[in-house]
C-alpha cells in the first residue's frame, strides 16, 4: 500500500510528466489558453493513459516477455495506443454525446501525445506489477491535468494583466512555464 502511494505521488508531482520529464509539451503550450478546454484535455489524457497502460501491460507480459522480444515494445505500443484511442473515441461518440462534445477535438489529438507512450514505456522499464501500473498511469494523468490547469489559469489571468507588449502571448507562457518548472523542482527528493 505504501508503495502505491509513493508511486502515485512520484508520478503526479516529483516526476511530473510535463515539468520534470518534459513529455507532452505540445498540449502544455497549445491547449492551455482556456481553463475549461485544458481540464477537458486533462481528463481525456487520464482516461487514455489508464486504459493504454492496462492494455500494454497485458501485451507486454503475455506476448513480449515470454518470447524475449522486449525490444519491440515501442513499435507495438505505438500501434496499440493509436488504435485504442480510435476505439475509445468511437465508444464515447456512440454512447455519451455530452462527454464527446466536452472532450471534442482533444481525444484524437492524444494519439500523438508522447506522455501516453511515455507512461507505458516507463511502466515496463520500472517493471511495475499490474496494480502499480494502474496507479502510476492515474498519477501521471492527474499530474498532467494539474499542471495544465495551473498553466491555463495563470495564462487566462496574464492575458488581462499589463505586461510588456513584446512579452504578450507565447513569451509570457514560456516565462510561466519556467517558473512552474522551478516550483516543481522543489518536489525533488520528497520521497
Amino acid at each position: 500500500m505504501n508503495d502505491l502511494v509513493t508511486i502515485f505521488i512520484s508520478m503526479a508531482l516529483i516526476n511530473n510528466f510535463v515539468l520534470a520529464r518534459f513529455l507532452g509539451l505540445c498540449p502544455f503550450l497549445g491547449v492551455s489558453k482556456k481553463l475549461s478546454s485544458a481540464v477537458s484535455m486533462g481528463l481525456a489524457v487520464i482516461m487514455v493513459m489508464t486504459v493504454a497502460s492496462i492494455v500494454t501491460w497485458l501485451l507486454y507480459h503475455v506476448l513480449l516477455v515470454p518470447f524475449g522480444v522486449e525490444y519491440i515494445t515501442t513499435v507495438m505500443f505505438i500501434l496499440v495506443i493509436a488504435s485504442l484511442v480510435q476505439i475509445l473515441e468511437l465508444t464515447i461518440r456512440r454512447t455519451n454525446i455530452p462527454l464527446y462534445n466536452a472532450l471534442g477535438i482533444y481525444l484524437p489529438l492524444i494519439t500523438t501525445n508522447c506522455a501516453v507512450l511515455g507512461v507505458t514505456l516507463i511502466n515496463t522499464r520500472e517493471d511495475f506489477t499490474f496494480l502499480e501500473t494502474v496507479v502510476s498511469a492515474l498519477g501521471g494523468g492527474i499530474g498532467f491535468t494539474l499542471v495544465l490547469a495551473m498553466m491555463s489559469g495563470i495564462r487566462e489571468r496574464l492575458q488581462l494583466a499589463d505586461t510588456p507588449r513584446s512579452f504578450k502571448g507565447l513569451p509570457n507562457a514560456f516565462l510561466v512555464a519556467m517558473l512552474l518548472g522551478l516550483c516543481f523542482l522543489a518536489f525533488g527528493g520528497m520521497v
Binding site: 506476448l63 519491440i72 507495438m76 496499440v80 454512447t95
Partner: peptide
C-alpha cells in the same frame, strides 16, 4: 507479432464500429 497485433487492433476497431449502438 506485429502483424498479429496490427490485425487485432484493426479487427477491434471494426468490431467496435459494428457492434456499438447506432
Amino acid at each position: 507479432f506485429l502483424t498479429l497485433v496490427g490485425l487485432g487492433c484493426g479487427i477491434a476497431i471494426f468490431l467496435a464500429n459494428r457492434f456499438l449502438p447506432e
